[in-house]
Each structure stands twice: as C-alpha cells, then as structure tokens.
Nucleic acid binder design. Sequence first.
DNA 1: AGAAATTTGTGCGTATGTATG
DNA 2: TCATACATACGCACAAATTTC
Lengths: 245, 245
Amino acid sequence: MTEQKQILRQSGVALWRQIADRIRAAISHGDYDETGMVPPEIVLAEKFGVNRHTVRSALAALGQEGIVRAVQGRGTLIERRERLNFPISRRTRFTQGLGDQAREMQGLLLSFAEEPASRDIAQRLGMASGTQVLRLEALRKADGRPVSRSSSWFPAERFRGIDAAFRQTGSITAAYRMLGVSDYLRVSTEITATHADSSDLSDLALSPGAIVLVTTALNADPEGVPIQYSVSRFPADTVQFTIEN
Amino acid sequence: MTEQKQILRQSGVALWRQIADRIRAAISHGDYDETGMVPPEIVLAEKFGVNRHTVRSALAALGQEGIVRAVQGRGTLIERRERLNFPISRRTRFTQGLGDQAREMQGLLLSFAEEPASRDIAQRLGMASGTQVLRLEALRKADGRPVSRSSSWFPAERFRGIDAAFRQTGSITAAYRMLGVSDYLRVSTEITATHADSSDLSDLALSPGAIVLVTTALNADPEGVPIQYSVSRFPADTVQFTIEN
DNA sequence: AGAAATTTGTGCGTATGTATG
DNA sequence: TCATACATACGCACAAATTTC
C-alpha cells in the first residue's frame, strides 16, 4: 500500500505525460475529494521532482480532457472524477447497464453497410464465410461524453432494418425488440487494452497516449443462435468493467 | 477490421516507443508467425512513416525486453510471442485457468503480513474496520515470464498459515484446500487499465509506457462468506481476459 | 478597505532528447 | 557520423487573479 511510483526520465514517455497519468489516477481514486482541487503546481512539482512548467504541461493536458480547470489565483479545480461502471453479465445491456450512472444516454449511428462476412466474422457468428452481414458503427455518449465506439456485425437476412431501428431508438436492445427479438444473452466477452489510435482520438475525444479498453463480444438469442458480434472501444480513464458472478 | 492505427507525433510518447508497442502487439497477435521474423527495418520505417533510425530504436527496446533479437545479415528474429488468455467465471482459478497455455506455472510469495483492515478492505470483506487481515503479495509466472502481480487480503482468523501453504504450493486454490476450503466462488471482478508504474516495470518486467490491466476481485466460500479480496496487475500486451457466460 | 500571501499565467534563455536526412 | 530542426524540461523572473489576514 506504500505509494512509491516514480517518474522516469528518458523512458520514451514524456514527464508531463507520466505526471498527467498519475494525477488523473489520483483524481479517479478520490485523493483530492476533500478540497475538490488539485494541489498547487509548486507542490506537485516538488512531489514529482520536476519543474513547475512540466506540471503545468500535465495539467494543461488534463484540462484538455475536461478533467480539471485551472483558475488564476484560486487553483486547479477538478471538473469530474466519476468512472462509469459497465457491468458484464449473461444479460449485458449497454444502455440499461449505464443508465443509472448518467442523466442521459445517447446512441449515435455513425455508419451502416451490408457486406459479405470476413472469415473471422463468419466464424464468430457461426455462418459460412461470405454470407451477407450488416455492419453497424455506433458511438455511445453518457451526458454528452463519449463512452464507447463500437463496430457490430449482424446476420443480414434476419436483421435487415436494424439500422433504422437503432437510429430511432439509440439502443441495440430496443432495435432487437422492434425486429422481434425480445431477449438475448451475452455468450462471451474478451477484454484487452491498448493505446488510443487516431480514430479513438476523434471518436472518443481522447488525448494522444490515452488507453482504451477493447471488448470483443458475442450475443446470441435464447436458442443460442449468434445474433451479434461486436468490437467496442472504451476510454480506460473513465470506464471500468464489472463482472458479477 | 481495417487496421489504421497511426503513429502520433508530439503526443508525449516518443515515436520509437509507439512503434515498439505496435510491433510487440503484432508479434503477440501472431502477424509474423510465417517467417518468425520482424519485417526489415526499411519496410517498417516505410510502413510507419518514420526514419529507419527510429525503427532501430524501437527494435533495440524490444531486444532489451527479450522479445526480438537482431542478427546482422539475417534480420530481426522473434524470440517469444505468446499471449495468455485468462478466463473469468464463477469458478475462476488462476493456475488452472492458465494451465494449458504454459508449460510451467509458478507462484511466488513476495511478502506477507498481518495487519488491521483498512476501511476499504474491511468493507469489501464484509467485516468491521480494523479487524486483522492477512496481506499476501504474490507474483505469478508462466514459463518464467511474469504474468501477474497481486495483492490479496484474507480474514486473519480463518486463514492463518495461508502464507506457508501458498509458499509451498504456489497456488491459492491449493492453499485454501490445505486450510479446509475445498471450494470457492468468484463473486465479482472489476477490470480497468492504466499505465505501468515503476513497480510494474520491475515486477512484471515491463518497459515504461506499457499498459497494465488491473483487476479487483472478490472471492467467497460456497456459503457466500467473503474469503479473499485481491488487486492484480497484468501486462496488457500479453494477457487478455475472457468472460464466458 | 488594504496589504500580504497564495496561486495560476507568461516570457525568455539554455540544455538535452528525439527524429530526420 | 554529422548537421539540422523541433520537442521536452529546466530555472528564473514577473504579471494577474484570488484568497487570507
């Protein structure tokens, strides 16, 4: 439990970035909840053993992410520290799962296409390679903040029209219902993590170097027939997953 | 499915590091399995849009990690590339879960102590704050490579002697059995991701800037009584989680 | 109200690291 | 290996806004 993380020089990661990551984590951890503010720049500089300018670079990056806001003469205020919890279970539902943690959930359809299934997609959905599938690219927001960017594939024959249904409702569960699927189950979920790529930067409004959690999920209807394969990307600094058994 | 990750300049993460991360991930993903070698430096330089010097810096870093080995006149050989899959379920077992993916699993006891439970720990274990708990710090290795660094807390009264049992068997499951707990269940698992800190660098043999997956898990006996709370850190480039429902 | 202390904002010069060709 | 350009980090100084006494 002893905190002894070090700032490493000449590691290929700039000091300001390491410090930004540390401060972000401390905020998430609730370390500064008493004051609602980050310690003064001069204090942080001393703590990390760097120049005040370097701390300022770190705070500027966090400001860009909307995590803190500096006010001259007062200090650097914490704007948000919540971390959305996304529960994963046999009945994983996106909108519903995050529903009580945000005032407003939003599901945007970015793009939609019908295409022949790649070998990987076909295998995951349990169909012949080349069978038509629908690809739906979606962006989810909670209170206006991006929380996930997903690519989903559906068997084309069964789910034609799901784009309109999703566009209308902003929810896959609701879209399924409109197409006659009243229930479905999460078969499996793979979770990995990687650095944000350029599309994450724009889609999820991340800063370069941020971490994204990547899930690869398979949903099936109650009979066990695969109905959806999807790959989703979440900003790791604001999302965590919980598996309840 | 289109690969379009970009190398980002002025992101606070040096180009050579970003490229090293990309190549490490590609190796883990099996992209170069046909030849067992990384593409020539010139090719990589062109692919990433950087100078060959920069690629060389990246490969030098990977060589330092023991992932590749450059041979003059031949190319850059891949030394190891496995990515471990860690299944999470109601009956999550560490050693057993990874058992078939490595020739040899190893569980090392790093340190052990009896201490009063912090408010957080006590709450998780469902006991009064200040009650004695046992803290066990462990390092897991698969075929000699670190795959997880964990801190676990146990109710002291019930599990005194678990350190000796773990030291002897290298497995929590086996240690439980020696103490009369023949079965236990995973109640919940939280998963987040963050940058590697200095202790990760040494414990998990990571390079600065690497990503670690962090799990926070609670285990209970068949009666539902909490018996273990633990926080584990995994190198994200070589480990993924799978939740089977 | 006003002076002092605190805290963020800005400028400039210098040294070193990173990346290119 | 060398030269060049730019990013990173430091140290110092001072301005501007706010809080404290």
